[in-house]
Simulated assay, not measured.
Amino acid sequence: MPSDREVIGLHEPQFCGNEWDYLEECLTTGWVSSVGKFVDRFEQMLAEYTGVKRAIAVVNGTAALHIALKVIGVKTGDEVLVPTLTFVATANAVEYCGAIPHFADSEEKSLGLDPHKLEIWLNEIAELRHGECFNRQTGRRIKAVIAMHTFGHPVDLDPLLEVCRRFKLELIEDAAESIGSFYKGRHTGNWGKFATLSFNGNKTITTGGGGAILTNDEELGKEVKHLTTTAKIPHPWAYYHDRVGYNYRLPNINAALGCAQMEQLDSFLEKKRILAERYKFAFSKVQGIRFFTEPDFAQSNYWLNVLLLDDENAFIRDTLLKKLNTSGIMARPAWTLMHKLPMFHSCPRMDVSTAENIESRLINIPSGALLL
Rank of each mutant, 00 (worst) to 15 (best):
K109N: 03
A212I: 09
A64I: 09
M148N: 05
E108Y: 12
L23G: 05
G180D: 09
L128G: 07
L65T: 06
K203D: 11
T319E: 14
V35W: 10
G185K: 11
S181A: 12
V7C: 04
R54I: 10
L372V: 03
F283S: 04
P333D: 03
F268S: 02
D351A: 04
Y240P: 05
F291D: 04
D4P: 12
L372F: 14
T230H: 12
R5K: 14
G245E: 09
P348H: 07
A176L: 01
E277H: 13
L197I: 07
V74I: 11
K322P: 04
H339V: 04
E48Q: 12
R140F: 03
H102G: 09
T229G: 01
G112R: 04
I205W: 06
L161V: 09
V88Q: 04
G61P: 14
F283N: 07
N252A: 06
L111I: 03
V163A: 10
H116M: 05
L160F: 00
E170S: 05
P154H: 07
K322G: 11
I274W: 07
E79H: 10
L81Y: 07
V244E: 10
E95C: 13
E263P: 09
G208K: 06
S110N: 00
Y248L: 01
Y248M: 07
E95R: 15
G210D: 05
